[in-house]
Structures are given as C-alpha cells and as structure tokens.
Design a protein around this nucleic acid. Sequence first.
DNA 1: GATGAATGAGCGTTCATTCAT
DNA 2: AATGAATGAACGCTCATTCAT
Lengths: 225, 225, 225, 225
Amino acid sequence: MEYLGGKISIDVNDKVFLKDPRSSKLGNKIIEGAIDLIDEIGFEEFTFRKLASSINSTEASVYRYFENKHNLLVYLTLWYWGWLEYRLVFRLVNVEDPYERLDRAIKTLTEPIKQDSDFTQIDEVKLNRIVISESSKIYLHKLVELDNSHGFFKPYKDLVQRVCDIILEINPGYKYPHMLISTCIEGAHHQRFFAEHLPRLTDILPDEDAVTTFYLDLIKKAIQK
Amino acid sequence: MEYLGGKISIDVNDKVFLKDPRSSKLGNKIIEGAIDLIDEIGFEEFTFRKLASSINSTEASVYRYFENKHNLLVYLTLWYWGWLEYRLVFRLVNVEDPYERLDRAIKTLTEPIKQDSDFTQIDEVKLNRIVISESSKIYLHKLVELDNSHGFFKPYKDLVQRVCDIILEINPGYKYPHMLISTCIEGAHHQRFFAEHLPRLTDILPDEDAVTTFYLDLIKKAIQK
Amino acid sequence: MEYLGGKISIDVNDKVFLKDPRSSKLGNKIIEGAIDLIDEIGFEEFTFRKLASSINSTEASVYRYFENKHNLLVYLTLWYWGWLEYRLVFRLVNVEDPYERLDRAIKTLTEPIKQDSDFTQIDEVKLNRIVISESSKIYLHKLVELDNSHGFFKPYKDLVQRVCDIILEINPGYKYPHMLISTCIEGAHHQRFFAEHLPRLTDILPDEDAVTTFYLDLIKKAIQK
Amino acid sequence: MEYLGGKISIDVNDKVFLKDPRSSKLGNKIIEGAIDLIDEIGFEEFTFRKLASSINSTEASVYRYFENKHNLLVYLTLWYWGWLEYRLVFRLVNVEDPYERLDRAIKTLTEPIKQDSDFTQIDEVKLNRIVISESSKIYLHKLVELDNSHGFFKPYKDLVQRVCDIILEINPGYKYPHMLISTCIEGAHHQRFFAEHLPRLTDILPDEDAVTTFYLDLIKKAIQK
DNA sequence: GATGAATGAGCGTTCATTCAT
DNA sequence: AATGAATGAACGCTCATTCAT
C-alpha cells in the first residue's frame, strides 16, 4: 500500500522535544538510532550515553533534542499513533458501509505491521515491537497526569475516537465504545507479546492472524443490538 | 468474606527470593514496606536504598532476601495471583451452575479489591494498585523467557486456566478461551488505571462497577454458540 | 620419598590464627577449601563469604579461625615454608659433602612440587601454585613490619639460613649469601610463573627442569673463590 | 644527567586508558595524585574515591580516564618501563665496548632512582617505590593472559631484550639470557624492598650500592665462557 | 563451638546533566 | 549547533564484621 511517497510527514506534539529531531541530520540519526537500540536492549537498559555512542555522537548533543529518555519514548509512541491514524484514514476513505469500515479499522489496529515505504527513516517493524513492549511504560508512570496535561495522549484518543465513531454509527446506543476499542488495541499488543515470549498464556502462534479474527469477532458480538 | 482466619498462607515460588521473607520479622517488614513505598513513589523510583531507610534497616539486609528489585516485584505479583486464585476457589466451591460460576469468577477478577482480613500483614488494596500499575513490567522485560523458565508465570496461568475451564464447560468448542480471559484481566486493569489517571480514554468513573459489567457482557456474548 | 607417614605435622606460628585450624574438622575443611578456592579464583577475588559457601559453612565460623583473609594466606605460606624446611632437612641428613648438600638444597627449593603423601589433607601442588602467584602479597603490603614483628617471616629466614650455611661452608668469605638464596627462591617462582603465563619473558617451557639447572649454575659460579 | 629537557614524552599503550591522561590538565593531576597516594597508602587501600578526593575531583571524572585501578597501575608501570628504556638507550649511545655497555645497563636497571628533571610532572623516586612494591601485582593476577594479549608487557620485554643483546654479544652461546636479566631486575627490586622493610632477609643496608655490585658480579660470572 | 541473622561501611559504576568552547 | 570535558548524585552490590542464639 503506497500513499504519498515521502511527501508528507507525521507531526508530533512539540512539547515532547526541545528541538525537532526531523529538522536536522543529527536529529534523524537520534530517532533511527533510538529505535534500533531500544528494540535491541529494551527501554530499561537504554541510556542517552549508549545511544550517543551508537550513533557516534555525544550525550550533550542528544540532550539538545530531548529532555530525557522518557520523552524520547513518548516521541516514538506519538509518532506511531499518528502514523497509525494516517494509515487508518487512508484505508477508510471512500468506504461507505460501516461494517466494512469497522473491519478495515480493526485490521489496521491489530494486524502485524509491515515496513512502510512512505517513511524511509523509520523502521516501522521495530517501532511496532517497541510500542508493544515499551509504550505502556509511558503512562504506567507517576507523572502520567503531567504528560496528559501536555496533550501527549491526544493522538491515541483521536485514533480510538475514530473507531468509536464507526461503532456508534452501527449501534448508536452502545455504552462503552472507548473501553471496547482500547481493550482491543492493548489486548492485541499483549497477545502478540505473549505469542512471542509466553506462548502458554495464549491460544495462538506468533505468525497467525487469529489475533485480528478474535478481536473482530469480539467487537461485532459486543455491539450487536 | 472470611475464609480461614490467618491459618493459611500463600506460597510463592522459592526461586524468586534468596531467603523467604515470610520466615522472619525483618522479611515481613520488607514486604510491607515495599508495598507502601512502591505504591507511593512507583517502581521506577523505588530502590533498595529507599526501602531500607523507610523500614530502618540497611540495603545489605534487604539483599539477603531478594537478588534485586525486579524479583521483589515478581514476589508481590506472584503472591497476588496466588491470593486471587485462593479467593476464586473459595467463591466457586459448591456452586454448580456454570453461568453462576462464570459470573463469580469474572467478578473476582475484575471487581475492585477490598481489604482481606485473612492476611493482616498485606495491604491488598495497595497491592492491587501496584499490580495494576507495575506488574506488566515483570514480563515487558528482556529477560522474560528466563523468568518464565523458572515458572514465575505459573500462578497466572493457573488462574487463567481455572476460568478457561468454566468457559469450556459452557461452550466446549470455543477456540480462544485463554486469549479471552487474559484480555479481560489485563483490560480490567487498564480500565481501572485509565479511570483514575486518564479519564478521557475510558467511558467510566473510578468507583463505578461498569468494568465488571462490561467484561462479563463481553465474555458471555463472545462464547455464545 | 616417604618420611614419617602422617605421624608428624607442621607447626605454624600461633599468632597467625585465632583458633588452630588443625584442631577441628571444620578447621581442616577451611584450609582445604581455601587452597582449592584461592588456586581457582585468585587471592584478590577470594573472600570469606565465598570460602564459607564453598565448604557449606558460614562466614562467622571462618572468623573463629582467622582474623582476615590476609592471615589465612600467611598461614598457608608459613605452612609451605615449614614443610619445605622439613623436606630440606630430610634430604640433607647424613650427607656430608657440601657440594652435594648444595645441590640437594637448590633442587628442593626450585624443582616442581609433587604431591606429598605425608600430609594428606594438603594439596601441595595447588599450594605451590598459590605460593608462586600470591605469597609475595603477604610482604608487599603496608603492614609488613607488623607481621615481621610477630615473627611471620621466621620460617622463610630459617630456610634461607640453612642454605646460607652450606654456602659459607664452601666459601666462608662469600659476602652476600642471603641475597643470593632469596634471589634464587623468588626467581625460580617468577620463572615458573612466566613459563606458564608469559612465555615470551623467559627462555624455558613450563615442564622443563632448566630452572633448577640455571639457578644451580648461577650459585656455583657466584660463590667460586 | 639531562637529555632532552622536557621536549619528549613517554608513549604508553593506548589500550590501558580510555582517555590519554597526558592530554588534559585533569589527566595529569590524576597521574600525579595516583603516584602520591599509592606510594602513601599502598595499592590495596588505594581507591578511585580516595584518589578523586585527594585531587579535589570526582570518581566519575577519574573513570573517564581509566577503566579501573588495575589499569591505572599498569599505566604507571608501563610508563616506568618506557622511561627506563629511554634512559638505557641514552646511557649506551656511542659506547662501543660490550663490557662497558653491560656495566651501564645493569647499573641503570638496579641503581636507586634519582629524580629526573626531564619529566617534571612525574616523581620518579615515588614511582620507583611503587614499581618495587606493587608492580608485580599487575601480572600476579588471574587476567594476566588478557593483559598480555593487549601487549601490556611489551615495554618490559623490550627492555629485557636490549640487555640480552649485550649479553649475547659477549657470549653468543649463552642459553638463558632472559632468565638471567629478569632475575636481576626482579631480584634487585626484592632486595631493595627487603633492605627497607625486612632487613634480616638480606645482607645489605637500604642506601648501600651493594645491590648493583652483587647483580653485576652475578651476571659476569654466569656468562663467562 | 558453631551458626544464622543482621548490619555499617564503602566500593565500583553509571547516570543525567551542565558548562565552556 | 554541536561537542568535549567534567561533575554531583545515586545506584547496585559486596565485604568484613558483630551479635544473639
């Protein structure tokens, strides 16, 4: 699926960074390097020192872009949610039937990620693994309310809201659309993680598409009138 | 609900600790203090140094019990899952009707926790908050396979399995019981966290019982033949 | 060479220990275990904690015998020098010719050690490796004068003196017998260490008897009138 | 003896340090301070913490230069051997007679050290005491093979080789030149240490020049055809 | 006499961050 | 704007040692 061939870019809340990493060569190297390194060693072990040395730069330089490693992870996550919403919008455009729209939406949210040629600097496959394994740490955190007040969770809410709208189109009286959608998004992440690392906790294999099937079925039955 | 009035105790996999904290006064203080402190400042900020000073002991002493703070969190989580399974078993005993059993099981897993007078040293309310906010960090972790090989996730699997069995009693052909139950357990945690910290991401208020209602409904519809 | 079949024992200066390790089963296990462990991991890495756990005892128990690990190493070294003097005496008894006596003495001091069946609890081969690698640390030490005042170096001096006496018998006017003998003892240790670990620093192979040949030749030429 | 008046410097294998201490003011203070402190309290008691506080800096800063105290000691020792080789070369230049060359070489290796005005930051007298008391610890060590593979012992070998060459000039058939020279170097160190701390083990007084006399005599007799 | 429990002290290390250039 | 140097603070951990039993 190709959309706009490198002519667009995902905007990220500018409170997350001190200097926009998209605005310079070093900034782009920081993002690329961070994705590689977090994917490799995990967010707990990840430090600006290790990042700097992996891209042949210095800690001081990284600090020009991000206040701390938490905000760098927030940046990656926000970019991911923004990118996912962008893909969702493209997949739904000109599709009228709400059931077909729901189908496409849930697939977008739960199917395994493939490399996206529109954003060459970002390795979406690695980034997806990071979002699955690490992104919950951005809100399971004592300062979550502060981040929320900066609007860091808006892209996630926007994404959820788009799918909620489809659900309410199908069943305007359904009371818990947000709970339903966020349960599916987080749940799909969990299941993919379990499938890879703790297979006994799930019923599926890593490469199966049962995750999408399962959550689509769950939603359809839940919102039946 | 009273069961056995302090005469039983929850056993925890002895690979998690170096010395059983239940075996000494200091060990009990460590557990109590850890629950208070993690609940207060969060697991990232929690260190053995801070714990030691909060219970007027020393780091060296804490290290006699736990290899590191990760294992201490694992201990708390295992105790929690063990305790929850114990409660589940008591609530289901002598109940024949599978729908009634399912009802009770889901309530046990998703309802807000109240203090349990059977285990006076443990503050289950705080521990529940910790499990909600921090326990996912025990598997979202680079060494998850090692912990799994030590059997650290067995209590969780056992708990899930008990509810799976009820589901298969109702609908023997249902294909994804584990996915369904773990989605509900994790989902309920998420919703309670959102309700408290990120209200815009959910449809409920913190003290509402909508969470249980929602997941019970979800499950029943999902497993309908 | 058999001497007295377990009926004698080497006495060690009783200021080195708090309680004589030869006086109890645990004490013997401490000595045996210490030899094994120091030979395996080196004296720097060696601690009473590791020793205690390797012999299934406790640190507190080890402290009943030795004040610290330094004194334990001194004990082993003193035992070694005592044992070597005992062997020397046996080898020289009834030998009249001073050149033959010198020959035998230097061989005793510089030849590779073989297991001695007279002292079954002590592994002399390992102990010899320890003396070569670690024993210089007992005097290359800020408190060497204190140890000296306790007489810890007397067995070494006695041993050296015995060989000096032979040299003075051959050449009563020789001025530096102590320097000569201690140079040979320490030098032979060094050469054996180099041969094993830093071969480029020496001219010999580990199992060659060139070390003895070399030092014997050196001494004979040095003391020629 | 003046050579080049501060215009040259001794190069040290760059695998010993993380950042060349000669390249900054702080680096030089670290070297100076380390020499003072090790000479004063001994290498066992010496820590980066104490060093840092003695030069009014921080541990973290010291760690930018050296990975650990072992490598700092290696640095000092390598510098010493490099410096000694440099002095040896100067003392031998334009001297033809091999016996005169041998004489000068052995004096360089065994005579007491006097302050060298060419290298003002280094206190060679203290450094010599350190080399005598501590430098054997850099090879009497479990990781000696690793250090050797990094080439840490090359300056020592080079120095020894230069004197071996003189010996082979005098007696081309002599079989153990390396053993002879390293025996003398290490032996002279020992004797100076004994003379100062354990006088009963040697035949000399601390300030006597008998050490040089003794080893020169030993060598000459040993290599006589 | 031997052991189990506990602890004070300090080490090596790393981190996040700042300052000067 | 980017970097090199330096640092304060804290962390995880282990050690030697003592006390109570």
